[in-house]
Simulated scan of single mutants.
Amino acid sequence: MKKTSALPILIDLSKTTADQAARELQTLVKARADAGSQLEMLQSYRQDYALRMQQAGASGMSASNYHNFRRFISTLDEAIAQQNRSIQQLESRLDGQRSNWLSEKRRLNSYETLQERYRNQQQIIENRNEQRRNDEASINLYHRARLQAEKSQP
């Protein structure tokens, strides 16, 4: 009776888990890229608005317009700071998810290595059994031929 192994089940489960970890990692990488793009947009908008304020100040502007420019730039600075915090959180999650994915990949590779070793051991056993059967068949043929030769001699 052939012994069944739990390794195929473990490998399938590990593949599923590793694939899910990879998808989650990919989602976080995209979220990080999107957050980086949004940060760049906010920084560009802030720089553009500061330049407008400087140009308007050079030609003279009212105190209320100056106050409105400063308040809007301050709001942009807060949005930039919040986006930086958001990016830091995403990077932290990315590091954790990357570690999780690598761990799942190592587990899957370990199971696949064990399965390959098991297959190799089974092949060695099968080769030995085949050799044993061939040796027994050769011995039987030799003995039959010898008996035949003894019977045919006077």
Rank of each mutant, 00 (worst) to 15 (best):
A6F: 10
T27W: 08
R23V: 08
A33N: 10
D19C: 00
A21G: 04
S14D: 10
V29C: 02
A18E: 08
A21E: 11
A35G: 02
I9W: 06
S14Q: 08
A18S: 14
T16F: 10
A35I: 02
A18M: 08
A21D: 14
K30A: 12
P8Y: 07
L39G: 01
Q26W: 03
S14W: 03
A6P: 13
L39A: 05
S37I: 04
L28Q: 05
T16Q: 14
I11K: 02
A31Q: 11
S14I: 05
T27F: 12
E24S: 14
L25Y: 04
L10W: 11
L7N: 05
Q38E: 13
S37D: 06
A33R: 09
L39W: 01
Q38I: 05
K15L: 14
A6L: 13
G36I: 00
K15C: 14
L25R: 09
P8Q: 06
D34E: 14
A22E: 09
D34I: 03
A33V: 04
T16G: 12
T16W: 08
D12K: 15
D19A: 11
I9L: 11
A31Y: 03
D12H: 15
L39T: 01
P8H: 04
D34N: 10
S37C: 01
T27R: 13
L28V: 09
Q38P: 00
E24P: 04
Q38S: 12
T27I: 13
A18V: 01
L13F: 09
V29A: 09
S37E: 09
V29T: 11
D34Y: 00
K15F: 12
Q26S: 14
L39E: 03
K15R: 15
T16P: 01
I11T: 02
D12F: 12
A31R: 04
D34F: 00
K15S: 14
E24T: 11
T27Y: 12
A35T: 03
L10H: 14
R32T: 08
A6V: 12
L7K: 05
L7Y: 09
D34S: 05
D34Q: 06
G36K: 07
I9D: 09
A31K: 11
E24L: 14
Q38Y: 08
T27L: 14
K30W: 03
A21V: 04
S37L: 05
Q20C: 05
A35R: 00
A22P: 01
Q20G: 10
R23F: 07
